[in-house]
Amino acid sequence: MNAGDQKDGAFEYLTTRKDELVGWARKFSLFPYPFVTACCAMEFMSVSSTMYDTDRFGAALPRFSPRQSDLLMVVGTITHKQAPVLRRVYEQMCEPKWVMAFGVCATSGGFYQNYAALQGIDKIIPVDVYIPGCPPRPESVIDGIMQLQEKIAGSSHPIVSDRF
């Protein structure tokens, strides 16, 4: 279809396609920031190494600077002492950014219902995907990554001006 023929319709058609294109590119280039604190770290190590290999999903290369990463993986229990640190790391990340709550402690505090543990990281930062399990099996982590990829592919990506 020649965009020059239909001056009005072409604009919307291109916008949708652009989101899909950018979403497709972004979902395979996740740079995770592993905010690793607790037991789930053991599974995080397994997930990112040979047997399960998150490289297949384009999410293998951890970046230890929040400025360089776009996926915050909160792996393990977040305590009230840790909360300001997590919040600051989240704020330092550049848009677009996604957050994954890895394991029940990050999701809801898990079975630590007491004075020390934060009852879910969504109390202080927004979360995109929750992975249940204590700790989750690597398969559920991979499932979580795939769901996040679907979410990224299906959302709009306002990266450049509307004229594009």
Binding site: H80, K81, A83, N114, Y115, K123, I124, I125
Partner: peptide, 18 residues
């Protein structure tokens, strides 16, 4: 917190909740 008169679930958060 480990004194018996400290309620187990009394939180003292450092970050304001969303």
């Amino acid at each position: 917190p480990l004194r018996k008169d400290y309620p187990k679930e009394r939180e003292q958060p450092l970050v304001r909740y969303r």
